[in-house]
C-alpha cells in the first residue's frame, strides 16, 4: 500500500470518529442540561462554553454572552471553522476519495451519502430546532460507516490502518471529553451542596461517551468521579475506554509491523509501552492528579501519531 494512501486512510478513520464525538457531545450536553439538577448545569451559557471548550476553542472572556445559534453554527455547519462537523466530514470524504481504489464501493458510497446529507442540511433549521435530528443522524451514520468498515473490507493492512485512525482518535476524543467534563464538574460544584465527586456532570460525561448504560450495569450505582474515571479510562471491556482504544491500536499496529524482534524505536514498541503503563495504573493514582494524567496521555498519543507518521506514512 502507498504510504500517502495509508495516511489518507488513517485520517479518514480519524475524521469519521471525530465528527461523531463532536456531534454526540453537542447533543448530550444540550439535552441533559435542560433538566439538570442544579442551576449552573442548566444554564445555557455553561453548556455553550463547555461545547467551545471541547472543540478546543474555549471562550476566554468570562463576561461575554454567547449566542446559542452562533455557537451551534460554528461547531456544526460552518465551512470556515476548521473543527466544525461539516469540515470533519468533508475531510473524511476527501481522504476517502484519494484512497478510493482501496476501499469497498459500499463504504465509499456510505461516506459519500453522509457527506451529501450534511452538505444539504439546511443550516437555519439546524441552529433553530434541528440539533437533535442533525446530531442523531451523524452518530447513526458514523455507526453505519463503522459497520461498512468492519463488514465490507478485507481485514488486511487497509483495515488495520483505518482502525488505527479510529482508535487513536477515540482515545484522544475521550480524553478531551473527560477533560471538558472534569472542568465542568469543578465549575458546577458549590451552592446546592453538590459535591464534586457526586456531580451530575459524571452522568453527562458517560452519556457523551455512550457508556452510561454499560457503566450502570457494571457498578450498579450512581456514577461518581472515581467510578466514572475508572470505567472510562481503565476498563478494558468498555469499548469506549482509553484502555480498550489503546489495546485496539496495539492490535492493529501488529498487523503492519509483524517483526518480533525487539526494536525500541518502532511505533509498536511505543504503543506497547504506553498501553502497559496505563494497564497497571489504579484509579486513585490517576484521580489525585487528573490534570497531569490527561496532559500526559495527550502527549503520549501525539508522540505515537508522530512516530507512526514517520514509520509508515512518510512519502
Amino acid at each position: 500500500m502507498l504510504a500517502r494512501v495509508a495516511n489518507n486512510l488513517f485520517w479518514m478513520g480519524r475524521y469519521i470518529e471525530r465528527s461523531e464525538h463532536i456531534a454526540r457531545y453537542l447533543n448530550v450536553n444540550y439535552f441533559s442540561s435542560l433538566d439538570a439538577p442544579n442551576q449552573l448545569s442548566q444554564s445555557r451559557q455553561f453548556v455553550l462554553r463547555s461545547m467551545c471548550f471541547m472543540v478546543g476553542d474555549p471562550e476566554l472572556d468570562d463576561d461575554k454572552i454567547l449566542l446559542e445559534e452562533n455557537v451551534l453554527y460554528k461547531i456544526g455547519v460552518d465551512h470556515n471553522t476548521p473543527y466544525s462537523i461539516i469540515n470533519n466530514v468533508k475531510l473524511a470524504r476527501e481522504n476517502a476519495n484519494s484512497a478510493r481504489d482501496l476501499i469497498s464501493t459500499e463504504l465509499y458510497e456510505a461516506i459519500n451519502k453522509f457527506y451529501h446529507f450534511i452538505l444539504n442540511y439546511d443550516s437555519t433549521v439546524f441552529v433553530k430546532n434541528g440539533l437533535h435530528d442533525f446530531t442523531l443522524n451523524i452518530t447513526e451514520m458514523t455507526d453505519i460507516l463503522r459497520g461498512k468498515i468492519r463488514g465490507t473490507l478485507l481485514h488486511d493492512p487497509v483495515y488495520a490502518i483505518i482502525m488505527l485512525g479510529i482508535n487513536m482518535e477515540r482515545a484522544t476524543q475521550i480524553i478531551r471529553i473527560i477533560n471538558a467534563k472534569y472542568n465542568d464538574a469543578l465549575n458546577s460544584q458549590g451552592s446546592y451542596g453538590d459535591k464534586f465527586s457526586k456531580s451530575f456532570e459524571w452522568t453527562t460525561l458517560l452519556k457523551c461517551a455512550e457508556s452510561y448504560d454499560m457503566m450502570r450495569r457494571y457498578y450498579k450505582k450512581t456514577p461518581t468521579s472515581v467510578s466514572t474515571l475508572e470505567f472510562l479510562i481503565l476498563n478494558p471491556n468498555c469499548p469506549r475506554s482509553i484502555m480498550n482504544s489503546l489495546n485496539q491500536v496495539y492490535r492493529h499496529i501488529k498487523v503492519l509491523d509483524s517483526t518480533t524482534n525487539y526494536n525500541k524505536n518502532s511505533t509498536a514498541f511505543l504503543i506497547g509501552k504506553v498501553r502497559s503503563e496505563i494497564q497497571f495504573k489504579h484509579i486513585e493514582e490517576i484521580e489525585c492528579n487528573i490534570q497531569t494524567f490527561i496532559e500526559n496521555i495527550l502527549q503520549n498519543l501525539s508522540e505515537i501519531s508522530l512516530k507512526m507518521e514517520n514509520e509508515f506514512f512518510n512519502y
Binding site: 502507498l2 504510504a3 494512501v5 478510493r100
Partner: peptide, 30 residues
Amino acid sequence: HSYLAKTMGVELVEGRDLFVENDFVYMKTI
C-alpha cells in the same frame, strides 16, 4: 482513474508516490 485502478486491482499513484533510483521506478509504500 480510481475506477480503473480499483477494477484492475492495482495502485493508483500520484507523481509524489513514485521516485527513480538507478533508472528504475519505485513507489513509496508502508
